[in-house]
Structure formats: C-alpha cells, structure tokens
Computed example of a mutant assay.
Amino acid sequence: MRGKFIVVEGLEGAGKSSVIELIVSLLQGAGHTCQTTREPGGTPMAEAIRECVKQPWEETVAQETELMLMYAARRQLMVNRILPALDAGQWVVGDRHELSSLAYQGGGRQIDADTMQTLSEITLQGFRPDLTLYLDVDPATGLARARGRGELDRIELSGLDFFTRTRERYLALAAADDSIVTVDAMQPMAHVHECITHHLMAFIACP
C-alpha cells in the first residue's frame, strides 16, 4: 500500500520539532515505516537552496526570488524523496510543505494568489499532504521562543507585522481545508501532544 504524507506547520517557536518526534514514535508504534523531511531542504540541492534563502544578503532579496527558491527546493524534495518513499509504502512526516509558502509568501509577503497558483501547478502538479497539523502560536510568543534558541535567520527577522499576516493566512487556509487540523500551541506542551495523539490516531484508524 502507498504511504501517507503528514505535514507539521506553524510559525517559528510553535514546537514543530517536538511534535514531529511524537508523530514518528506513534507511527512506528502502529507498525508503519516512516521518514522525516524538512522544507526548505531534505536533499543536497534543496539544502543548498535553504542556505541561500535563510542567510542575510547585502543586496535586496526580491519577494518573488524567495518564493521561487522555496518552490524549487520543494520540487527537488518531492521528486527525490517524498514520492519514492510513499510509493515504497513508507509514511513521510514533513516539517513544512506548501502551506508554509501560502502563509509566509502569500500572506506575510503579500504575493498575489495567481502567482502562487502558477508556481504550485508547475512544481507540485496537484500533489498535497494527506494530513496537515497546524500548530497555532501567537507571533510574539513564537518569536521569543525562537530567539531563545539562538540568532534569528533572515526570514525570522522579517518583523512582527509580517508574522501577524502570516498567522492570519494560516488560520484562514486551515479553516477552509478539512485536511488541516489546527492545534493550539499556546497550551503546555503535554496538552499539545495529547491533541496531536488524538488526531493522529484517528487519522491512522481511517481506512
């Protein structure tokens, strides 16, 4: 049987890494072989694109350049890792996927929907996750958590207004898509894990 693609989404500081570890443990406990990926990144070329996207540049990074790099990395990851794994019957747990671009570049950077749709059609060709778990966190809280981990990268330095727009777009997209589950990441992590476990086990149980 073909594997399933599960994605964890959220702003910086939402707790994605901890949740991904939990999901992998639950999937393995249910007898599924799985692997993890991250975006941008996940293949040698995509990781090089990640470094290009995140580092500070002396020149202005055009919003469209950032967007196209994100989709280029995503295409490399999909073709080289995600699709082969799914075809082999493995489950893939992704740290971000297209919803990030729709929220960050579409919402935060305010790139128009037609441009987003065109790039999506070219690179993903209709491919989408089977389940997305969106961890919702207040931008100020999330950025404070991210600062606690160390120096912020170029995107993390985009400002509170940017992340407020990004969060608003995340919430709107999640409300309109039954395959996206929103989890309150402002709760204690133990409660977040309980919610994730509940939704994931219900998903696994579905035929």
Rank of each mutant, 00 (worst) to 15 (best):
T36Y: 03
T115A: 14
S120E: 12
P44R: 10
E121W: 02
G142R: 04
V19K: 04
L77G: 03
F127K: 12
N80D: 14
L27S: 03
T60I: 11
D112Y: 05
A175F: 07
V183G: 00
L143E: 01
R50N: 06
G107E: 03
E64S: 13
S100W: 03
Q76Y: 09
M45H: 10
R149K: 14
H199M: 09
T36Q: 09
P40V: 04
R50P: 05
Q90W: 09
L67K: 00
R2E: 15
E151F: 02
D136G: 03
T43M: 03
D87R: 15
A30M: 05
A62M: 12
D136H: 07
D136V: 06
M45Q: 12
E9G: 04
S17G: 13
M186S: 15
R50K: 10
K16L: 07
K54G: 07
A190K: 12
I204H: 07
L131C: 09
D114G: 11
T164Y: 07
A85M: 07
V24P: 00
G89M: 03
T182G: 02
Q55N: 15
S25R: 13
E9T: 08
H97T: 04
A88M: 04
I20W: 05
P129G: 08
I23M: 12
T43P: 08
L102R: 15
L22W: 02
D178I: 05
K54V: 13
F203C: 05
R147A: 04
P207R: 15
A176H: 10
Q105V: 10
Y170A: 05
L124F: 13
G29H: 03
L135A: 01
V19N: 04
S179C: 02
E98A: 12
C206F: 00
L143K: 01
F162L: 11
M1K: 10
A14I: 05
E98H: 04
V79F: 00
Q76S: 11
E66W: 06
P139E: 02
A146R: 08
T197Y: 04
F127W: 15
Q90N: 10
R169C: 08
L131I: 09
Q110S: 14
Y71I: 07
Q63T: 13
R38T: 08
M1N: 11
P207W: 08
Y170V: 06
L135W: 02
V24N: 01
R149Y: 09
E151S: 15
Q28F: 00
D136F: 01
G89R: 05
D136W: 00
T33L: 12
A172D: 10
I180E: 06
Q90K: 14
P56A: 13
S25L: 10
E168I: 06
L119Y: 03
R96S: 05
I20H: 02
M1A: 14
E121G: 11
G31F: 09
S25T: 12
H32A: 12
L26T: 00
A172F: 01
L160P: 02
R169N: 10
E21G: 14
Q90A: 13
L22F: 01
A62D: 13
G150R: 09
R75K: 15
V19T: 11
V61C: 08
L171T: 10
R167C: 05
A146K: 11
A172C: 08
R50C: 11
R169S: 06
R154T: 13
V19D: 06
A88T: 04
M70Q: 13
H32D: 06
E39Y: 06
G126F: 06
V61G: 00
G89A: 01
R154K: 09
Q28L: 01
R96L: 02
V93W: 01
L152W: 12
R96W: 01
P188W: 03
A144V: 07
